[in-house]
Design a protein around this nucleic acid. Structure first.
Lengths: 95, 95
DNA sequence: CGGACATATAGCAAAATTGCTATATCATGA
DNA sequence: TCATGATATAGCAATTTTGCTATATGTCCG
């Protein structure tokens, strides 16, 4: 299943594509983290919503990666899914 | 320099204190990450501001922990300081 | 098929963050 | 002391996220 890597690399060498990717990637990365945490906790979006004191559509939106959430939301989401939000800024030459 | 740990533990056993601490902690944790990244890059707040296309006061506010920033800001800040924002929701029984 | 349950999207108001200007504080060196 | 560079804070407008209701999709049984 690693056959896509070369193509990916090639596409990312296009500056325009690269820029879009760089800005988009974090949203999906976070979305994946959210979904992982929620399934680990065995909760539905409605469950999480109720626990966070909001509605299911809000959770769906966060997990869809249609926008970068605030740390506030992230921390609250983490809390109700039995997780802890860890944020690090790691040195990275390639950016 | 570990003498404060027992006191800290005791204080946190007070529910009211604990709640305030839980909500406050992430802001300062993030602020510390920001400042670390910036000094690693050898930049001033004004430098970062310019690179991000904003002003020094905005950076000062982010680093003061007076509010939880958005992932958007975090990612942009990371980028100009030669870092990468890593967000993880790690399983954590104690919360 | 028809009914539950889970997730996704739209549209708008409310709330929070961001951007900005101005100014304050603080440390350092000439 | 004065000047300079760096960081902090205030106040307000602009932008973004959040919260909400309603509705759409999609899936899995019975």
């Amino acid at each position: 299943m690693k056959k896509l890597e070369p193509l990916k690399k090639k596409m990312l060498s296009d500056p325009a594509v690269r820029k879009a990717y760089d800005e988009l990637a974090p949203e999906y990365e976070i979305a994946r983290e959210l979904i992982k945490a929620r399934s680990r906790a065995g909760l539905t979006q409605s469950d999480v919503a109720k626990l966070m004191g909001t509605t299911q559509s809000v959770i769906a939106r966060m997990e869809s990666g249609s926008a970068l959430p605030s740390m506030n939301s992230l921390v609250r989401y983490a809390k109700v899914t039995g997780s802890r939000a860890v944020v690090k800024l790691v040195a990275d030459r390639n950016n």
